[in-house]
Design a protein around this nucleic acid. Structure first.
Lengths: 135, 135
DNA sequence: ATGAATGCAAAAACTTTGCATGACG
DNA sequence: CGTCATGCAAAGTTTTTGCATTCAT
């Protein structure tokens, strides 16, 4: 099943790639770092080298299968690409990541870029938040 | 004059700190990496160690004197803190950085955080753009 | 068979830390 | 003077690269 995804993306189907993709699927929305994937595979008895994971994810991203993000400091994290674009909210207390979309914000970004004579290629928007304290 | 800024911020006024702050002032809006500052100081005949620059900027940022940003990959870049908050547009062709503010986007960010039960502490918004191609 | 992917080791890029010395207040 | 900043060297973290071997098609 992953094989189809990879093949469809024009990527050679190898065991490491299938396993890495599976990890992201099993993560079911949670964002994983390369290290996370590496350790998860180790525990599953699969021994995949770190550079392989970096290279696979790079390919996956180029193919549009996954997206990477960098929150605050720390390593890049990866998630399966979803149908609709979304931005992220990062909770500074719990490190929890929440996804959201705001059509109005999206629209204005495009508008602002164009007002400056540019074409909007991509954007990153991360809201750093804390649980609202009840007063 | 920088001395006042530093003193006012409760920071000990040392030669390296003054020189570093000067570089950011001379940069006049352009964002500088630690390496940029380091080399600029070297060329100016000032010999300041890299860790000193990192540590000084860390202090400056805590004191609200400077802001740091990370665009795509590459090193963190620093700029003098300005009165009003702003976001950034990063040109993928020229690496030029353009600053902008959109009150509507600001408002909606806050709203979205609150709708999810959070308090908006900070945010990063970077538009990655390319010069509009004339068709 | 051929080109691409892997694994290993090594390096690169950026940043931080430990510790002895020196400077600010 | 006591404390904090500095410089140096070394290490830490994350990511990339070179190269020989293996694998997919």
């Amino acid at each position: 099943m992953d094989n189809q995804e990879l093949r469809k993306a024009g990527l050679k189907v190898t065991l490491p790639r299938v396993k890495i993709l599976q990890q992201l699927e099993d993560a079911d929305g949670r964002h994983m770092s390369v290290e996370d994937i590496y350790r998860a595979l180790l525990e599953a008895g699969e021994d995949v080298a770190l550079p392989t994971i970096y290279r696979a994810l790079e390919k996956f991203e180029q193919a549009g299968l996954v997206e990477s993000h960098k929150f605050e400091d720390g390593p890049a994290v990866y998630e399966l690409a979803q149908d609709e674009h979304h931005d992220h909210m990062f909770c500074l207390d719990t490190n929890k990541v929440i996804e959201f979309v705001d059509p109005e914000i999206e629209k204005r970004q495009k508008m602002i870029a164009e007002q400056h004579g540019y074409e909007l290629v991509d954007h990153t928007l991360v809201l750093y938040v804390r649980p609202k304290k009840k007063s």
